[in-house]
Amino acid sequence: MQVHDCLSWTVTCKRILALDYHLDIYRAIADRTRRVILDELVDRSGQSLFELCSRLTMKHGINSSRQAISQHLDVLEAAGLIRTRREGRSKLHWFVGAPLKAIGERWPISTDDNISNPPEESIPQ
């Protein structure tokens, strides 16, 4: 019984956490290291923590600890921007761009010049 209670409590917490992060993809991409992680996962899908750390250090001079990068990956995963999968006995990471669509939907990029360049008088002083 106790084990069950503890388990459901953990699941609830994870759901709340996931929901919170999911709404906040902005927080996930607000950090430079996390943006570079996404860049590198776009460069090659399906990387291990080791490969990501190697790329961050060697290509970008980001010398954060493996634990710190692992925490960044947790934030990105909770925001739905990466997914993980086991291949053999290794855990690999993939970039998922779908949540970023919400940004474009919230602030559509207009192709109409009149709207992109508003008339002078409409700019508040």
């Binding site: 090659r44 990387q47 291990s48 080791f50 490969e51 190697s54 790329r55 060697m58 290509k59 291949e87 053999g88 290794s90 690999l92």
Partner: peptide, 25 residues
Amino acid sequence: VRFVQPPTDLGTVVTAVFDDTCGNL
């Protein structure tokens, strides 16, 4: 041989990682 990481250019070195089938990368 199964590779976990294909050849990757890291600036000063090129690396790749494979599974030795005996429990090691």
